[in-house]
Write a protein that binds this DNA or RNA. Structure first.
Lengths: 339, 339
DNA sequence: AGCGTTTCTGAAACCGGTTTCAACCTGCAA
DNA sequence: TTGCAGGTTGAAACCGGTTTCAGAAACGCT
């Protein structure tokens, strides 16, 4: 029950294995008769070239390493899906390692990928500095997804979180809201920091005073957001809208309001960030900043593909766009809710 | 800028590469002095053995192939995450290929994985028959996840969908519901068929007549479910509860009711299937059959690991359990809704 | 026919490890 | 001192492909 090798094909077709290799890869012309015999034998035995041997011989493994962050977020899942889809029709396959959003863990994951001689690297999010990355990845083609690494050499595919936070907040302000609560993301995540920066920018630009007491703790989970909004309600502070740093947090906020019988959007408006699948089916459907997660994964994997073929690629800044649905209402003038 | 090989280490340590290999793998005793020199050189150069070469030499690639179905479902994503997590601390890495839930596509994906000489295979869902699988995978250790393949030889890790459908329906019946609508899944999916079977069984067992007109089209998406429930409402058929074949469909159903101002659970109760993350934050929180998706991926990857080490593994049937939350109300006797 | 050029082709080296095998070195018992 | 078992070691074969190189064959031309 031996697996069939290129030599077996060569024997059957009465040629040398060099010739078999040549027709399989089309690297040189071969006499039509021999080519036919080889193809016939290949087909007859269902011969599958050993990718491992091939990789060793020509130095290209046809695999690309993907560093994921196993944080169970639909956003990161969608990126991974996009990567898989983007590579689907190429000869490359993705191999995944989890970095757990933790520096040392990420470093060893990348080392493992390099040990497997991946031809390129896709880094999704993570905690590594630009220096870390250039030091470890050396000359390996690498693309960073879903965050911007401040280094001239590293191509990134990411969305402008500051802008996203800005347009969401501005939309609320344009609808008459002034007392807007913000549910933060994880403090150490750049995404979270940027979205908050956008939030602040919209306030400053509108000349509205930002009430620090309305900036709530959050960690990107629904449960934490629910707690924070609960606390906010108990504080009796006035607020007419909530901007959540991601959709999960918006879900948590919405549930907290539901529990207290506070109507959305009649009494309180909500805006999220991500536009995950379920958001369009929240009651009411959630107005949120759409991040093209799957497209990012797709784009990045194709870009890496280009990079491998010597074409240059420069960082790509995507803009999130506001998906206007039904969770935001124009604030009725002169009748501020919960006065 | 050559990468450093085992031969380089051997030269520096003044030994043969055989000896280096031996200390790296601990396959034989080596004089402490040499061992120390080798280790020192290894460390000094940051030597990472070439996994590709190693694989070719000893026939084990230390990778396991994962056939996913890129259907953007949180359920399947969670399984993949579980697989990655389960393999994280082993020397194995997962390599992913998408089968698109389409027979020929799945076959070529598996062939590609075999060409990469994966040591084992994890098949998540899919459309392949048991014969297909045993024919293609031959003697390759294989575990099927999230469905049962009726073949004695193939180990599967899956949940009992019939039972899940049964307990969900029974719960509704116990709460006094008789006119229960069912939102189907994709007709060709065994999961969908099984859940419906469970639905029917609960009816039969309770001696209640099942109204075929309340069995609605569905395809596991929220949007389709929303349409179906809309149509149902327009039909003016009486119903007091909805059992959706998955949570996404439950979301769609909930939105349709919201649009018509039909209260959940006061007027209509809803039960879902999956228990995806967002379900606990629906308004009201969704009562649903929990499928341990991530655990399944985790369990399967570890089981495959055992299989690779010669330990036997037999199929594992997991039971879904009902997560009782707030989307089901006891039907008030003698006041059937929407009469 | 003779010659140069181009196209095919197979032998052998190579990729970077592991593993077999035989030689070598101990130490210990006879 | 010799014999032998057991532990170390390096040379070489091997895994299954690709690629270089040089020779052979086919071709076109004068």
């Amino acid at each position: 029950m031996k697996t069939v090798t290129i030599q077996d094909i060569a024997n059957v077709a009465n040629v040398s294995k060099s010739t078999v290799s040549r027709v399989l890869n089309g690297t040189a012309g071969v006499h039509p008769d021999k080519r036919k015999a080889i193809l016939a034998a290949t087909h007859k035995f269902g011969f599958q070239p050993n990718v491992v041997a091939r990789s060793l011989a020509n130095g290209r493994s046809l695999t690309i390493g993907v560093l994921t962050q196993n944080i169970g977020s639909p956003f990161y899942d969608a990126i991974s899906q996009g990567v898989i889809a983007g590579l689907q029709d190429s000869t490359y396959s993705p191999i995944f390692m989890d970095g757990q959003w933790e520096r040392t863990s990420e470093i060893s994951a990348i080392k493992a990928l390099i040990g497997r001689r991946v031809d390129g690297l896709l880094l999704i999010g993570g905690a590594l500095s630009g220096n870390d990355i250039s030091r470890i990845c050396k000359d390996l083609p690498t693309i960073v997804i879903a965050r911007q690494v401040p280094s001239r050499k590293l191509p990134c595919v990411f969305v402008d979180n500051v802008d996203g936070g800005y347009i969401a907040t501005k939309y609320l302000i344009e609808n008459g809201h002034r007392k807007i609560a913000f549910i933060q993301g994880l403090p150490q995540h750049q995404d979270a920091i940027d979205r908050f920066a956008g939030f602040c920018r919209a306030f400053k630009e509108s000349g509205i005073q930002l009430d620090r007491r309305l900036v709530l703790d959050g960690d990107f989970t629904a449960i934490k957001a629910e707690c924070s909004v609960n606390r906010l309600c108990e504080s009796r502070l006035k607020f007419t809208a909530i901007f959540a740093a991601n959709d999960a947090s918006a879900f948590g906020a919405r549930l907290a309001l539901y529990r207290r019988n506070i109507g959305v959007p009649d009494e309180v408006s909500i805006v999220g960030f991500d536009d995950q699948m379920e958001s369009a089916f929240l009651t009411p459907p959630l107005t949120t900043v759409r991040q093209p997660a799957q497209e990012m994964g797709n784009l990045a994997s194709r870009a890496l593909f280009d990079l491998l073929n010597g074409k240059p690629f420069k960082s790509q800044l995507l803009k999130g766009c506001l998906q206007i649905r039904e969770s935001v209402a124009r604030l009725k003038t002169r009748s501020n809710h919960r006065d």
